[in-house]
Design a protein around this nucleic acid. Structure first.
Lengths: 260, 260
DNA sequence: GACAAGGTTCCGAAATTTGGAACTACCTTG
DNA sequence: CAAGGTAGTTCCAAATTTCGGAACCTTGTC
């Protein structure tokens, strides 16, 4: 196992649930011996990937990660174009917008557009969630082949909220529905009382894919209002697909004929 | 040289001026042979620290750096406290506020509070600038001992804008002035026509130090307006120093008696 | 089809990493 | 104040990685 692999293993221990870790935490999470952990933490701290609180001696991501993080897709055309459109939709509807990317079977929030409605933002940028339990996450999965999806989902199907697909078969059924109707919807899944609608956008040029969603309180919205969101999203999707040359049709054909 | 050192060397090649790099760029910047560069880039990509554009094949910071970057000092009390105060000052004065940290002889912008005045934001978070050429950068340096400063400034004194200190002696004179008057000001340095005033804040508890500045257009502000900014900053500094237990007096005494 | 740019793979020598154990430092508790 | 615990550091020889030159592949171009 290379030094880099070990370093990454430590870095991956940090998350919004665990933004800082003690020496013992890292040892427990990685299962590595004390001496190795000690050396590696020191290296990571010295190079700026981690910082150490001089008082509590706990470790947290360092200045270098902050700098690099700011650079991540800073000039990404697909994302900035989508964000611009999403801003307008959010301004009109008052709801909160999300842009996320797929990573394995999880998604990571890249951008958030706060709405005017008072719904607390629970998924800040950088947040990692199972893609199976969100509208835009499933919309992205729906554009992959079933084989590809199978390879992403862990062998032991994860425990998900009540309204999310509870096993692989349910998941595929749900994705088929998205492929058929072109609409991906979620309600009361990751967060109780919160619903969302989303779609996936793929650049014809670079092939990169993002998931776009609008999120709202289920209690505080009427069926008519949700239908309005659906229309807004459909219009936005159509416009963005045209602008980015999204190969949606080819993808759908590829999946339906079972071509890899 | 460890694998981690090499990895960091590559990561440090990225900056806002160079947000993505080709294989050849990395080779040229690090001076490493092709085979080593190839292996290392692949590792960095596989572990998520870098991404590769499938079309142009250029590398850029990856999803993992984005996630970790969002975690960096997310729960830092000193910064969030300072940001809260800065927001109020910026709302009252209409100018743009900055919070930065010192790293060697450079500073990195952590937070920015846009003002209501139409002054384009040129230093987004993550931006790295010589601390010698900014008001809050010099304010931070002024709290270090002259020996410490000497160790940070490169042996060949860097080429700085016209109004910045042009050599080590000028720098020390300027820092002494900050130590005496408690005021750090800059005008027409990093950016033509832009002035700023700043101060350094140090937590008595953790010892961490940040630089806080308010920035404005020199042409568009009167001397009276700048005096108002000075008063606002002085009040803010006093309040924050009280709240954080800033050991300013001890630091000053330590520097003046030449104690390490 | 030759050429160049960009990149990968191979291999033995050289350097680094590994992890157990011994050691240090600093609290806390009886 | 001794004993015990936590948090780490340092040491060392064995095991594993990395290193870089050279040969090799791939893709686009003239």
């Amino acid at each position: 196992m290379s030094a880099l692999t070990n370093a990454i293993e430590i870095l991956r221990c940090f998350s919004s649930a665990r933004p800082d870790l003690s020496f013992a935490d890292v040892m427990a999470l990685t299962g590595k011996p004390k001496s190795s952990t000690s050396r590696l933490l020191r290296s990571l701290r010295d190079c700026g990937l981690l910082e150490q609180d001089p008082h509590t001696r706990r470790y947290r991501p360092g200045l270098l990660t902050f700098e690099l993080g700011r650079l991540h897709r800073a000039h990404d055309d697909l994302i900035s174009m989508a964000e611009r459109e999403l801003r307008e939709v959010c301004a009109r509807t008052g709801h909160t917008g999300y842009i996320a990317v797929l990573d394995g079977f999880e998604q990571v929030v890249l951008r958030i557009v706060p709405g005017s409605n008072p719904l607390r933002v629970v998924n800040p940028p950088g947040q990692r969630t199972p893609a199976l339990a969100t509208s835009n996450g499933r919309a992205m999965l729906a554009r992959l082949s079933d084989d590809d999806i199978r390879a992403r989902v862990p062998t032991t199907y994860p425990k998900l909220p009540r309204n999310s697909p509870q096993n692989f078969k349910q998941l595929i059924a749900r994705l088929d529905e998205i492929r058929r109707t072109g609409v991906s919807e979620a309600a009361d899944e990751s967060i109780e009382g919160v619903g969302s609608q989303g779609f996936a956008l793929k650049s014809g040029e670079t092939g990169e894919m993002i998931g776009i969603a609008v999120s709202y309180s289920v209690q505080a919205t009427t069926a008519a209002e949700r239908a309005n969101v659906r229309r807004e999203l459909a219009a936005m999707a159509a416009k963005l697909r045209r602008l980015t040359g999204d190969p949606l049709d080819q993808d759908t054909a590829r999946i339906q004929t079972g071509t890899r």
